[in-house]
Nucleic acid binder design. Structure first.
Lengths: 227, 227
DNA sequence: TCTGTTTACCATTGTCTTATTGGTTACGAA
DNA sequence: TTCGTAACCAATAAGACAATGGTAAACAGA
């Protein structure tokens, strides 16, 4: 194993020298392969071998249609709705809801106005009188969102909307067709009452716990049987 | 005031009839004004008056370059990083962090592996030996993210990243220049120790409370004096 | 036979141009 | 004045085109 067996024509060395000499800062794009191989006087295949080595070393990264860039590949942000949706699952969604929504409810109990609470009660009444699961879920959604609105924190509301969007995408096909409308004694009705009641009482701890109990019921129903 | 003073040519009535007859479901786009006014045999001005009435009634919505659509105008999603950033403020950001991150820490105490905890300790050590505020904040960021990673919930991690992106954008210009590096007895060092210690002990409640105490200190420093 | 070069093609991405659309204004006719 | 017509504007959408990394086949040279 001779040294020139590793880098026969010195393409890699030549490329390193070029990068050291060129005025390229981090995240800047270097010339396209078709130009660069002419500048260095090597074939495109040899150049790509050297580039592959540097990429393996983490000194640069490449992407079709974009180019070749200095530095570390930008981590694909998980903070993106589509990528988050494609990588998660219903169990994670419920766990996240159980973590976050009770705390939202706690803050709602502190900040909700009378109008907010009236809005929640309206949503509850409409969900009770829903004539289809689709209607019920619409009002259920709106109830949960009105609680998030009551926190008077736009960022928190945005986080809730994000979570909600992921939830809808993940449990998409889940259409309950076995019954045409919710039972009058559907568990959610009583649980919603408890949540909104605690918010109206300004009982922050009870509000949070009621929401947690509600979501845990939903999770149980979701993961064990369908509904 | 005669009846035909309200709708002289009956354009509005004609348009209502057209919409009732046409096979247009919710969210579907109706023909552009230039076509529609020919179909109905009225001038574009008259058509636009009728459309304005229906829009005021909430039966349709219009937008330049897009068209005219049946149904309610889609609410601009707050679940968007840029809009959320532009409407929130540092106080909301801290409130949201104090609500969410302790719960993340609680779950991390349950799910963290030994490797996760080692990663957290590495971040703490690096932040202690940082020679600039910029370095310190980089390792502080990475510590908080490693805690979110330890939850083993990709959706929760995505939510954390979202919150973090907003935080960075909101408190952007805030560069601490009064000292070149953090004090060796900076409050965060001890608080980070308590958080990671509780995670290592699998003490979920203490982990959550330690994180809450830490963030409340950060909030106090942020809102009262700068740092 | 093996290695490297050339060439062509592909899928993805970015950029530029063009067309469409609601909104507005000016002008003229009734 | 009132209303229809035309023209223009800004925002948006859609398509055309070019550029780029990735890949395989054909070819040449040892």
């Amino acid at each position: 194993m001779t040294t020139d067996g590793v880098d026969p024509q010195g393409t890699l060395t030549q490329l390193r020298a070029f990068l050291a000499q060129a005025p390229l800062s981090v995240d800047s794009r270097l010339p396209p392969e078709r130009e660069l191989c002419q500048q260095l006087g090597v074939s495109r295949g040899e150049l790509r071998k050297a580039l592959a080595t540097l990429e393996a070393e983490g000194q640069l990264w490449r992407h079709v249609g974009k180019g070749t860039f200095i530095g570390a590949r930008p981590a694909e942000s998980l903070a993106d709705l589509s990528t988050a949706t494609s990588r998660t699952n219903p169990a994670e969604v419920m766990q996240t809801r159980i973590l976050i929504e009770p705390e939202i409810t706690r803050l709602a109990a502190l900040n909700a106005t009378a109008a907010d609470i009236a809005e929640m009660r309206t949503c509850m009444a409409r969900s009770r009188s829903a004539t289809s699961w689709r209607q019920y879920e619409s009002w259920d959604n709106r109830l949960h969102r009105s609680i998030a609105e009551a926190t008077r924190n736009t960022l928190l509301l945005a986080m809730f909307d994000t979570l909600n969007a992921v939830r809808r995408a993940v449990v998409w096909g889940r259409l309950r067709a076995n019954r045409t409308r919710p039972d009058p004694d559907h568990h959610s009705f009583k649980e919603h009452e408890e949540i909104v009641g605690a918010i109206a009482d300004r009982d922050m701890n009870e509000a949070a716990q009621a929401m947690r109990r509600h979501l845990q019921t939903v999770e149980r129903k979701l993961l064990n049987y369908s509904q």
